[in-house]
Design a protein around this nucleic acid. Structure first.
Lengths: 144, 144
DNA sequence: GCCTATAATTAGCCCAGGCTAACTTTCTTA
DNA sequence: TAAGAAAGTTAGCCTGGGCTAATTATAGGC
């Protein structure tokens, strides 16, 4: 359990995702994704560098260290489970599912995420096996 | 949608709960419940007073205004649903369920909470109606 | 190869929300 | 009823994490 603030976890996650999109991660990309200004990114990246979770040379690109990547992946894996829950299971609009997953991902530990994952798998299996279950579930969740 | 910070929402919720326990809410009670020091409570209560969500005369007790109560009850009702989910449905230890509910309650809007409520009701109904469903669900969630 | 646009950095500010230390008010009880 | 304990308040500080404005690097187009 690293003592990373929520904010720094968000930066790590954003770096991971930018990596997949842009190959070289830059301040600008993180600023856009996180909707902050570049000096805020700079401050955060400096702190992550101090913590040896990223490497960053001045005016250069930003890279995750192995530990930083591990941390980023842990956050992102939680995000994916939660997004799935809100978007697929509950049927929230995409943007709301994203936003909600972002807001809460830092507050759930690994075991809790594991349990949620298994619960969702179970529900999905049941829905696939049993059309009546599926229909009832949809009914229950259909209205706002 | 009031622009209350998470922190101020926590104070309102704490006032609501202290009310039920102590009759007169005091700075000291809020400080204990929220695990902060009394000057922090004082600052927050002053701000809530300015927002007309509580009434507080110097050295006196703290009361919710009608709007403050509405807000507090909204937060607390989310808390209850989430606590139920984590403690009852997932079977997390009490303290963890509490802490997790507290951490995320500010990030879920009313509709989402409504959907979660209906999902949990559905699962519980199924478990009651169908012993095999119940057994499978327990099995799925039994290990950490 | 220089000049400008874009990106990154630095300096310095603000706000929320903690804290301690010191002081004031209120309550209790001898 | 006066004194000490307990509670509340005030002053002033710190940290995280935003921001703007100003400066410095870099990279492309002429």
């Amino acid at each position: 359990m690293t003592a990373l603030t929520e904010g720094l976890q968000d930066y790590l996650e954003a770096i991971l995702l930018c990596e997949r999109k842009h190959r070289f991660v830059r301040t600008k990309h993180l600023a856009e994704r996180l909707r902050v200004k570049s000096p805020s990114v700079h401050t955060a990246v400096k702190e992550l560098t101090r913590l040896e979770l990223v490497e960053h040379e001045s005016y250069g690109h930003i890279e995750l260290t192995p530990e930083g990547r591990k941390e980023a992946e842990s956050v992102y894996s939680k995000h994916k489970v939660l997004y799935h829950f809100f978007a697929e299971t509950l049927g929230l609009p995409d943007a709301l599912a994203e936003e909600t997953a972002c807001g809460i991902e830092h507050h759930l530990d690994d075991k809790t995420i594991g349990k949620i994952t298994r619960l969702l798998d179970f529900i999905e299996r049941k829905a696939k096996e049993d059309p009546e279950f599926d229909a009832e579930l949809k009914k229950v969740l259909e209205h706002d």
